[in-house]
Design a protein around this nucleic acid. Sequence first.
DNA 1: CATGAATGAGGCTTCATTCAT
DNA 2: GATGAATGAAGCCTCATTCAT
Lengths: 207, 207, 207, 207
Amino acid sequence: MTAPVTARGMETRSRLLAAAEKIFGEKSYYRVSISDITREAGVGQGTFYVYFSSKEEAFRELVQQRAHDFRAVTRVAAEQALGDRVAAERAGFTAFFDFIDQHRQLYRVVRQAEFVDEALYREYYQTFAAGYRAALEAAMDRGEIARTDPEVLAYCLMGIGDFIGMRCVIWPGRPIESQSLADVMAFIGAGLRGCDAAGERGGGSTE
Amino acid sequence: MTAPVTARGMETRSRLLAAAEKIFGEKSYYRVSISDITREAGVGQGTFYVYFSSKEEAFRELVQQRAHDFRAVTRVAAEQALGDRVAAERAGFTAFFDFIDQHRQLYRVVRQAEFVDEALYREYYQTFAAGYRAALEAAMDRGEIARTDPEVLAYCLMGIGDFIGMRCVIWPGRPIESQSLADVMAFIGAGLRGCDAAGERGGGSTE
Amino acid sequence: MTAPVTARGMETRSRLLAAAEKIFGEKSYYRVSISDITREAGVGQGTFYVYFSSKEEAFRELVQQRAHDFRAVTRVAAEQALGDRVAAERAGFTAFFDFIDQHRQLYRVVRQAEFVDEALYREYYQTFAAGYRAALEAAMDRGEIARTDPEVLAYCLMGIGDFIGMRCVIWPGRPIESQSLADVMAFIGAGLRGCDAAGERGGGSTE
Amino acid sequence: MTAPVTARGMETRSRLLAAAEKIFGEKSYYRVSISDITREAGVGQGTFYVYFSSKEEAFRELVQQRAHDFRAVTRVAAEQALGDRVAAERAGFTAFFDFIDQHRQLYRVVRQAEFVDEALYREYYQTFAAGYRAALEAAMDRGEIARTDPEVLAYCLMGIGDFIGMRCVIWPGRPIESQSLADVMAFIGAGLRGCDAAGERGGGSTE
DNA sequence: CATGAATGAGGCTTCATTCAT
DNA sequence: GATGAATGAAGCCTCATTCAT
């Protein structure tokens, strides 16, 4: 809301945002009270409203800011494997699983967005999908992967990331095991390479 | 809570559950009040507590009951293509997308469970995954699909279903387009058939 | 309310009253619900209102009916020692302590009346006091005990009974010990005999 | 609950406690609503929960705080007559009756505790009894009063105080009449002095 | 007689937000 | 900038009571 002017103000604002990330990650949005956040941040209750105009605004800002950080991480990872989309996916997924392992609360924060501010949630995935889709399309143009609807493909891949992240990182409470990652990547690699020829159009290639 | 004894009681209880499904599907759990539900059901506020001991209990019962119905639908669909796992997947996914198209509210209800009762949410996916996994393992044994960790594979497939359902059914507000379905199935078919050899071990097959 | 006509009705009414005594003795009046009582009585919820027009009416009836029984018990005991008021007190107190030991719930029911229906509560004590007072006055006339305000004296004795009943019967959860009873009676006996001369006017008489 | 930090907060808390004393003294605990208290205190409903976590907690605090004040009053009175237990009793009872005359609501508050929080109620009387008992024992050691079980004696005296307070102060709605007080003290004085020899063992002393 | 069902008034409690200091 | 205090709207839930069968 009010942008902080002093260094002290910046510091307080950051503390509130960090506290919000922690608390929103532990409990559901609606089970979190402003005083939970201010207590965690070590500031007075009223201070919250110096920096955010509402609980929802703080949540939104958190999602947006962290989403930005997060996209940067996966993009950078994927860009290290230009010219080989399957390798880029492997790098991207690995970075993604690492990231959620290290920012577990953030994982829940983003998922909750669907029930706090659906537009924000869609925007989050649509923005991510747009970048993903562009990369996939480029790879199709270069012949690295089979041609198909890049939008649909992007959501398939995001779905895999989301569920495997949940199943193999969040639930176990530790980094993904390398074998699980390999199994995921094998499936994805085959799917990406083969989806033009395989299955849907007679499947003669396997003969 | 109190089990109804008379037919009238059974009827009221069903009406409440149907109303809950509708309302929980439209708004977030925490934005739904008991009176929203009773109003929709056309009964008095107090009547809710004749049948459910709390809002959360009603939500839980809804998830469990509907989850059961839903699993039955996809299972039946998949069983019509015994002996060809890829075909079974196509049947299952098609049934799944049809189901969520016709039970849009249910889709949101289940997703929300993560933030209402996490144990219930996990149970839901774990139960579903257990059945899925068994079917995939059998298909591996029969050589229909490449061998890999069936648990991981089940979550990959569930993730795809979940995200494509969101992107191609819920968001557009209409049944999935046949081309999108075909694109998804092409990716899945290739992934399932090829994931032992492809990608991870040199991927010479495409040469 | 409606007086029962059939034997079955009488039976149901008694069951409800007995259940009410038990439940009101265990919990506070306001923590007791009608369904607690009907459940205990083994009848349907609606049945309560066949016999009592309200919760408070049932409570009142319980107090009155039981109070009547109770007064009868102590009166009978005291009457066995006509001509010796101190002995009559001993008999009355003994009967009283026995009674509350055997009807523990009743003890709490009566005490609660103060906070449910104060008029009823006063009436209870005033009725009891009236009889008590008459007996004490007669004893004074016969010279068995010292003369003093019989009303005040009656309340002194009721207070002793009430508190010793609480301390030495209810709290320990068992009949009063004979030594405690003896100590109480020694105090009362001396008080009754000596209160004209002793203490207030120099107390020289015991020299 | 939350301890106030500022003077304003202290003031509000006190106002709430004073209002609670008044209202709980007028109506039964369960007939008092939080808004009755806040209305009396002149604050908003929510303010109650800034200082107390529940109605019961406020009630408990009230009993404890006021009980403390009350014990101090009677103790001080009794200590003015060291060396003459009967005189000390007279001073204590007089102070007690004065106190309840001036704090009528408090009288009902304490009695209600039995049905709100029984443990608190017992604690109240046990604490009071412990002090009383010690004073009586000391008097017995000094030969001022007859020897008997001091615990039992303390409860006899408390019972008298309680019932006479009710009958001669609360019910009439005015201070105790001096004649009633004298009658009570005559009974107590005789009881205290004579209870070893008198009554129980033949009572020949009055002959 | 008996009762399961229905209900709405009412009370406790939470909490996002405002504000004076 | 910071904050403790204050608040009223809102929601969950209980339960005495009524009623149709």
